[in-house]
Design a protein around this nucleic acid. Sequence first.
DNA 1: TAGTGGTCTAGACCACTGC
DNA 2: CAGTGGTCTAGACCACTAA
Lengths: 251, 251
Amino acid sequence: MPIQRPRSRYAQVADDLREAIKRGTYGPGAALPSQPELARKYGLTQTSINRAIGLLETEGLIRTERGIGSFVLDIPTVKRVRRIPPRGRGSGSSFAEGLQKAGLKPTTKLVQAEAIVPPPDVARRLELGEGELALIRKREMFADGRPVQLAASYVPMSAAGDVGIAFPDTGPSGLYERLAERGHRVVRFMEEIESRRPTEEEADFLKIGKSQHVLEVVRFAFDRVGRPLDVVINVFPTQLWKLTYEWAAEE
Amino acid sequence: MPIQRPRSRYAQVADDLREAIKRGTYGPGAALPSQPELARKYGLTQTSINRAIGLLETEGLIRTERGIGSFVLDIPTVKRVRRIPPRGRGSGSSFAEGLQKAGLKPTTKLVQAEAIVPPPDVARRLELGEGELALIRKREMFADGRPVQLAASYVPMSAAGDVGIAFPDTGPSGLYERLAERGHRVVRFMEEIESRRPTEEEADFLKIGKSQHVLEVVRFAFDRVGRPLDVVINVFPTQLWKLTYEWAAEE
DNA sequence: TAGTGGTCTAGACCACTGC
DNA sequence: CAGTGGTCTAGACCACTAA
């Protein structure tokens, strides 16, 4: 590969590596050659190679870990559809459904379930006063072992009554039934969607670069008088998911 | 501003400039000090300053022009709600509504309206055969003169019958009425949402960097037998918009 | 310890803009 | 022309990981 002038050299190196990745020379998960090695190969200094690597990282093609190396990320081929609102049964676990249909094995890990003072943005959304408690349930979700989604749900303790309401852990529809038994019926849902850069922890868990984006979907459930009964915050990488909403035209 | 060790120096410079921009020290449109000047101020080399500037550019805070300088871009403050499907009238122009509520003056420019052979992805979505025509209507949208959205709608000519159906240009609800008069009633809507990197043209029109993301919302309108009557592709920068969907719980 | 990626300097040259 | 941002080197040191 001859290095030519008009285009910057590090950009040409990035081009070359990008091509190699697309050709499959470095498949998903494979490590790129080390920076000193690439420097020798292209006849540049490590500084320039480092910059090329940075470019690919920004583009979301690779992820580099300090002291280890740079690794090719999965190339987003087919996006998994997440259907919202769900057709038919309640607002059940569209997560598992979607993945199973795609031939992937969904697994979920409950990492937190307790009564806490929620972070201020959640408290505001739940219309909680200073220091009021909420039941948090935090989950990590995987498809064939690969981390694909983070979910945190918050229910005001005033509505939940007891931490035990979270168990057995049957997903939102089970929770809503138990809330209904306590006199809190959900009559309306709302979802807010935005795309943003991931936090450090999110990027770490989802194994994505800092420059890739995540979709944050916040679902609110309201009772008859418009009070929020729970807030669910879902976060997933934009490359993996596509959202779908569907509704009937008015007559 | 003391430069300290644990965090990289160029990142600290970026932090400092970011703060200054947020504080208003450098307002929208203002030029940052030149790189040599910043290098003197922070006691670093131009190379490091250049890197800090690159960071801010990636984040979409500034825009730099070679041989001229770096300039602060508009900072998006409040995100706008876009859509609440089931409430109020049809799927009318939520674009204008949302912006007016935000105190911004919306303007729209129709840049194309004719019968064409649509691009393959659109043809597939409209279930069109090879070479079948569709009516395209392409719009550019502005808020207080700033480009904020791109929209392209496609209607199969077999349903539209005539290019004239697009006029007067009264937005989707007007179009749907005229389609209904021709025997094509819309009974169902669907929207697909994804976040992706902008194409070159999109980045250019929306005045965003290549590393920022856009939301693509594709709305389908279906008739009674599930045939697509039109497809509308909306593209806008993720920083400017927040999407909202709302629906009633099932009984 | 050796190997990885990350940062930084000093100095240089280039391309571009606007006067 | 002087001033701007962009690239590159040679060499150095650091932080981190794994054996």
